[in-house]
């Protein structure tokens, strides 16, 4: 669906990502992992055409994403940044309604179909009871779900999420991850997430892509990628990696820093 090759990305003179290839296949959940400042979020921004790369191309279904009309792209993919701003008096339903914007001409108003899709998106994210509440009065997890509902209202094939669980407590983290996982299974939406929590990344994604200092390090199934060696090389952390009996996937337990203190 999305193929990015030889990306070189930077701000002003500072190059953040170099020589990076990235492929997103239909139906998968990918977690992009790496230490702070490794360029994960930057890659996500470029892949979703929010930002331009200095070199390299991003193809969406075979077309250069910057050549496509940005509105057309908005019908195919939706990207949620790490932090969102909402005016203090927008309700959940009003926010979700903005997801229909790419499907309308500027002179058109909401159609019956738009209304239905808005209610559907609210239902998918289980926000029915909160639909008329102000976003700013919701908890962090509910707010995140409201934004995911807005993204769903775009009816995207690909959902890109930049650290969707940061700032949330563990219950809300799981709520968001379970929601993402269900959207992938039931609606077939392809998901790309930047995640900090490696155990969550392993548990909820089909494929991990590791990036460090703007360069590709490794990719593969969670089992193949989450290893002692990777943790030492990429994160400078000594850790124990075991297969968890309950979920049947690897989990890691940090033991200490790899470089001593």
């Amino acid at each position: 669906m999305i193929e990015a090759s030889r990306l070189k990305i930077g701000y002003d003179n500072k190059i953040v990502v170099e020589d990076f290839d990235f492929e997103i296949k239909a139906g998968e959940i990918i977690a992009l992992i790496g230490p702070n400042g490794s360029g994960k979020s930057t890659v996500l921004k470029v892949v979703s055409r929010l930002m331009k790369a200095m070199a390299g191309v991003v193809h969406l279904d075979g077309n250069d994403i910057h050549r496509l009309s940005t509105k057309e792209v908005a019908k195919k993919l939706s990207m949620l940044s790490q932090q969102q701003i909402t005016p203090p008096d927008f309700t959940v339903r009003e926010l979700v309604a903005y997801g229909r914007l790419p499907h309308r001409q500027w002179y058109e108003t909401k159609s019956q179909e738009d209304e239905e899709i808005i209610e559907w998106a609210i239902g998918q994210t289980r926000l029915e009871k909160l639909a008329d509440r102000y976003i700013n009065n919701l908890s962090g997890g509910e707010r995140q779900r409201a934004w995911i509902a807005m993204a769903l209202a775009q009816r995207p094939k690909i959902l890109l999420l930049d650290e969707p669980t940061t700032y949330l407590d563990i219950c809300h983290q799981l709520e968001v991850m379970e929601l993402v996982s269900r959207l992938n299974k039931e609606l077939g939406i392809t998901v790309v997430m930047v995640l900090h929590d490696l155990n969550q990344a392993v548990r909820y994604s089909h494929r991990l892509v590791v990036i460090k200092e703007g360069r590709f390090v490794a990719e593969g199934t969670p089992e193949a990628v989450l290893t002692k060696d990777m943790l030492r090389q990429v994160y400078n952390v000594e850790a124990e990696v075991t297969i968890d009996k309950n979920i049947g996937k690897p989990v890691f337990m940090p033991l200490g820093l790899a470089y001593g203190t």
């Binding site: 057309e72 908005a74 019908k75 940044s81 903005y98 775009q154």
Partner: peptide, 11 residues
């Protein structure tokens, strides 16, 4: 009012 990234995302 939703911020630059959200606006760009919406086309």
């Amino acid at each position: 009012q939703l911020g630059d990234d959200a606006a760009k995302n919406l086309g």
